[in-house]
Amino acid sequence: MAQLPEDVRASLRFFAFYLANGTLDMELLDGIDYRPALMQFGSTLEMVFTIFTNVLEVDETGLVINEGDAQLRAAQWIRHYCNPSYVVDPPFRLWETKLAGP
Rank of each mutant, 00 (worst) to 15 (best):
M47S: 12
T44G: 06
L38C: 04
I32W: 07
P90K: 12
I78E: 05
C82I: 09
G101S: 10
V64Y: 13
L28A: 04
L29C: 05
L56G: 02
C82R: 02
V88T: 03
V48F: 14
T23V: 14
G68I: 04
V55A: 10
T97K: 06
S11K: 09
E57I: 14
T97W: 03
N54G: 04
R73A: 11
S85R: 15
A74C: 02
H80T: 07
R93C: 14
R73E: 00
R9C: 14
S11Y: 01
G31A: 06
L63A: 12
M47E: 01
A20C: 06
L28I: 06
D7A: 07
G62D: 06
D89S: 14
V88Y: 09
G101W: 04
W95V: 13
D89Y: 07
W95P: 02
V64H: 04
M26A: 15
S43M: 01
T61A: 02
D89L: 13
L56V: 15
G42P: 05
Y34F: 11
L29W: 03
V8W: 01
V58W: 02
L24H: 04
L4Y: 14
G42Y: 11
Q3E: 08
A16W: 02
V58A: 00
W95C: 03
F41V: 11
G42W: 08
F17P: 04
T50S: 06
G68E: 15
R9M: 12
F17E: 10
G68M: 10
V48E: 10
P102Q: 11
F52L: 12
S11W: 05
H80V: 14
M39F: 05
P36L: 09
F52Y: 11
Q76D: 06
R13A: 14
D30C: 06
F15P: 03
M39I: 09
A2T: 13
I65W: 00
M1L: 13
A100V: 14
L4D: 04
E67T: 08
A100T: 13
R9Q: 15
